[in-house]
Write a protein that binds this DNA or RNA. Structure first.
Lengths: 126, 126
DNA sequence: CTAATTGCAAACGTTTTGCAGCGTT
DNA sequence: AACGCTGCAAAACGTTTGCAATTAG
């Protein structure tokens, strides 16, 4: 894998605090602020590549994929009120893996997805 | 909600043992064996409706949505070898909900998704 | 009768891909 | 020089939708 200004920028942006679990579209928008010519195709290509290299992680919710700089974070709360994706440090992977093994399966990736309301929304509404 | 031959058939098929976590496409193929004229759009419309009525459940994996007659089953193992979706009775929802509450969130739906190898594949390979 | 449901086909949102040329090594 | 990467545009994919005709209550 060679270097490219585009990919470096994309990785920086996904890793930045500014973007919270961005979609490819979000990344594209942010990228264009710094390098106007970058195409959406390039963003998709590079996000995919960075996931393959293990530099970032793809997170599935309803709708488009989201990307996460945190390679450990596989658990998320998807807020029904504001739509945000919030990291969820659950530490239940071992329990899931163990139960899966008991059922005769072998577990590689454990991914817990919660639909609900995030703390921010719960607080601002009351 | 009125009755229609098409919807009744679709519900029967999703509930049948013959189809295992079928996608809309799978359901369409099966439907056409009994009623050749049914359109894919009708299958999508009815699956969506049946989910809204709580008759069946939609399951997200990579790729297209899958449908499950089992309204409780929110946990699945997605086999990397054969691609099958296998129900996973984990009974960890309460633990997840509790942890989410500790973090200040409120959890509605808990959905655990495991990537791995199913027991069937583990046994047939050895 | 009326309103839900259908088949069809077109459109949608997201993602992938083929290609000729450009950039990095 | 070699080959990976780019922008562009077209296509793939899963899904939804508008419409006029049909069907169930």
């Amino acid at each position: 894998m060679r270097h490219s200004r585009q990919r470096d920028l994309i990785l920086d942006l996904v890793r930045s605090r500014a973007l919270n679990h961005p979609t490819a579209q979000d990344v594209h928008d942010a990228v264009r602020d710094h390098m106007p010519g970058v195409s959406l195709g390039t963003v998709y290509r590079n996000l995919h590549q960075l996931v393959e290299q293990g530099e970032i992680v793809a997170v599935q919710a309803e709708g488009p994929l989201h990307y996460d700089w945190n390679r450990q974070a596989h658990h998320h709360l998807h807020c029904s009120r504001c739509g945000a994706l919030v990291d969820l440090p659950l530490e239940l992977e071992d329990k899931v893996r163990e139960k899966a093994r008991h059922l005769g399966h072998s577990a590689d990736i454990v991914d817990i997805h919660v639909r609900g309301t995030c703390s921010r929304c719960l607080n601002t509404s009351t």
